[in-house]
Amino acid sequence: MYAQIVLFDGFDPLDVIAPYEVLVAGSDYLGGELTVELVSAEGPRAVVSGSRGLTLHATATLDPSRPGFVIVPGAVGPMEGDPDAVATIPVLLARFGDTDAVPLIRTALDNPAVTVATVCGGSLALAMAGLIEGRHATTHHLGVDVLEATGAVPVPARVVDDGDLISAGGVTSGLDLALYLLHRGYGPRIALAVEQMFAFERRGTVWTNTGRAPQAW
C-alpha cells in the first residue's frame, strides 16, 4: 500500500507534514507495510510552499495506479489581493486546476484500490477542478461557500468519509485525517498506537453517509 502526498506550488506545509508524520509512524507500527511518499504531478522536483518560500522535495511522480491513499493538501497565502498580482489562496487553488495533477487524480478516483483524501483547502482544489461534483466533503470554514458553489455537498464535520473520497477541515485536521485513514485501513490498534506516540487525541466528528437522517425540530 502507498500513501502519496501531492505537492503543488503554494501548498500549505502543515497540510503535508502532519499527515506525513502520522502515516510514517503508522508504517513503522505496520512493519513498513505502508510506503509514504511526497509526490508531484511533474515528477521529482523541489516544490515551493506558500509559506515564505519553505520548500519540500517530491521524490516521485504521482501514480494513480498504486493502491492506497492519494492525499491533496490545501494552499497557504493571503486571502485577499489583486489576483493578477498576488498569489492569494483562491489563485493558488485555481492554478492547481491547470496542472497535470487533475487528470491523475481523476484516474485515482476511478481506481477502486485508491482512496483520495484532502486536508483543508485540498477539497476546494478538487472541487474547483470539477473533480468532486455531487460528493460530500468538508474544508476550512472560510471556503464552505466555494465548496458548495462548485457543486460539492458541504458537511460541517472534522472529517467526512464519502467512500473513496475522505476530506478534513482546517489545517490541523491533517492529524485527524491521517489517523482516520490508519483506523479505516488497518484498524483501531494501529491508529491508537500512533495517537499514544504523538500524545494526541483525535477530535471532532467523523461523518459517514450512513444511518438515520435527523428529523427537523
Results as ranks from 00 to 15, higher is better:
Asp84His: 15
Phe69Met: 00
Arg135Tyr: 01
Gly74Ser: 09
His57Phe: 14
Ser65Gln: 06
Asp110Asn: 10
Asp9Cys: 09
Gly204Ile: 03
Leu124Asp: 04
Arg52Trp: 11
Gln196Trp: 01
Leu7Gln: 13
Ala60Met: 02
Ser167Ile: 11
His140Arg: 00
Val86Phe: 04
Ala191Ser: 09
Val114Lys: 06
Thr55Tyr: 01
Gly81Asp: 07
Glu42Asp: 15
Asp164Thr: 15
Val16Gly: 03
Gly74Pro: 07
His57Lys: 08
Gly26Met: 03
Phe198Thr: 12
Gly97Phe: 01
Ala137Gly: 07
Thr107Glu: 14
Ala129Val: 02
Leu142Arg: 13
Ala87Cys: 11
Leu182Asn: 03
Val91Asn: 04
Pro13Ser: 07
Ile17Ala: 15
Glu148Ile: 11
Tyr20Ser: 05
Pro214Glu: 04
Ala216Tyr: 04
Arg158Ile: 02
Ala129Cys: 03
Asp63Trp: 05
Val22Pro: 09
Ser173Lys: 05
Thr61Ile: 05
Pro78Trp: 07
Ala75Asn: 08
Asp176Tyr: 01
Leu54Gln: 05
Gly134Thr: 04
Tyr20Phe: 14
Leu126Pro: 12
Asn209Cys: 04
Ser51Ala: 12
Gly26Leu: 03
Val36Glu: 02
His140Ser: 01
Val153Ala: 08
Val155Ala: 08
Ala213Asp: 08
Pro214Ala: 09
Ser51His: 11
Arg189Lys: 14
Pro83Trp: 06
Val72Met: 07
Thr138Glu: 01
Tyr20Asn: 06
Thr138Arg: 06
Leu56Cys: 12
Pro78Gln: 09
Asp84Ile: 08
